[in-house]
Computed example of a mutant assay.
Amino acid sequence: MSINRISYTDLPQAVRLAVEDTTGPYEAATPVAEGLNNALAVKLACPQGTFFVKALPVDHRWVWTQAREAEVAPYVGSVAPALHARVVEAGWDVLVFEALEGHQANYAPGSPDLPRVAELIARIGQVECPEIPLRRAEQRLQSHADASTLSYFTGEAFLHTDLNNGNVIVNTGGARIVDWGWATRGAPWLDAAYWVIWLIAAGHTPRSAERWAARVTAWQVAPSQGINAFADASARMWAEIGGVSPDNWTRRLIEASAAWREFRSIAIEH
C-alpha cells in the first residue's frame, strides 16, 4: 500500500497544537526523505531545538509500527535518537523525535561510512533485548523459509532488521539508526545478514558484502547453514514483495537477494 505524503500544515489543527504543546511553536517545517512508510515526515525547527516528526492515520494498517517504536525508544538511546513525545489525536498517531544531524549512510563500495555502520550494528547487538512483546525472527521468516531451518533464526538478541541506508544517519560522531518499527527478537547475527542484502543492492559483490558483515562479531560465529537459509528466505521474500511488476526500488532488493542466494548456493556446491 502506497502512502500519500502530506505537509505538516495538512495535519488537523488539533494535532498540530498537541505536537506544539511538546515542542513549542515552530519556525519552519521541512519535509525530509526519511520515513517513506509514513504519511508525514518533517523536521520542525523550534526555538528549543529541531525535531523529527513522523505520523500515520490511526486506521492505517502500519500504525502498529508507531506503537512499537514508542515501546522500544526507552531501550535504544545508545544507538538511536531520543523519543520526545507521542501524540495520538484527531485520528492521527504522531511520534516526535530528536532530530539527528548528518547524512544518510552511503553503502557503496569504498564509502567511508561503511566502518561506522559495521560498528553501529555491533553496538545494536550489545543492547539488551527488552521484555516487551516483540515478534520473533523465526515467526517473521516462517512464510519464506523451510520449516527445518527456522531454528537457525531463534535467539534472544535485540534486532533492528531494517538496515536500509536511509535509516542510518552518519556524522562525525559515528552512526545512529532510526525507524524501529520492525524491532525483533532473534539470532544475534541477523542484523549483519540483513545488511548484506543492502550492501549488494548498493553495488557490492556478495563476497565483498559478507566481508563487511564479518566485521560484526556475531556474524563471525553464525552457522553457515543458517546464513544459507536466511539468504534463501530473503530471496523468496523480496520476490513475493515485488510481485509481477516491482518498482525500481524493490527490483534492486530482488536482484540483490537473488545474487546472494546464488552465491551461497555455489559456496555449498564447492
Score class of each variant (00 low, 15 high):
95 L>H: 07
97 F>W: 15
97 F>I: 10
98 E>P: 13
98 E>M: 08
99 A>M: 05
100 L>W: 03
101 E>V: 09
101 E>F: 05
102 G>M: 11
102 G>I: 10
102 G>F: 11
103 H>E: 15
105 A>F: 04
106 N>M: 01
107 Y>I: 00
108 A>W: 00
109 P>D: 04
110 G>C: 09
110 G>M: 04
110 G>D: 05
110 G>T: 03
110 G>H: 05
111 S>M: 03
113 D>W: 08
113 D>H: 15
113 D>T: 11
113 D>K: 10
114 L>D: 01
114 L>F: 01
114 L>C: 09
114 L>T: 04
115 P>K: 00
116 R>V: 11
117 V>M: 07
118 A>W: 02
118 A>E: 06
119 E>K: 15
120 L>R: 13
122 A>H: 13
122 A>K: 06
124 I>E: 01
124 I>P: 10
125 G>S: 10
126 Q>E: 14
126 Q>S: 12
126 Q>D: 13
126 Q>H: 11
127 V>F: 06
128 E>R: 13
129 C>M: 04
131 E>N: 14
131 E>Q: 15
131 E>K: 12
131 E>M: 07
132 I>H: 11
132 I>E: 06
134 L>Y: 04
134 L>D: 01
134 L>H: 04
135 R>T: 05
136 R>L: 10
136 R>D: 01
136 R>Y: 07
136 R>H: 12
137 A>W: 00
137 A>G: 07
138 E>F: 03
139 Q>R: 11
139 Q>D: 14
139 Q>C: 02
139 Q>Y: 08
140 R>C: 07
141 L>E: 08
141 L>T: 07
141 L>Y: 11
141 L>F: 13
141 L>N: 08
142 Q>A: 14
142 Q>P: 02
144 H>D: 09
144 H>R: 09
144 H>P: 01
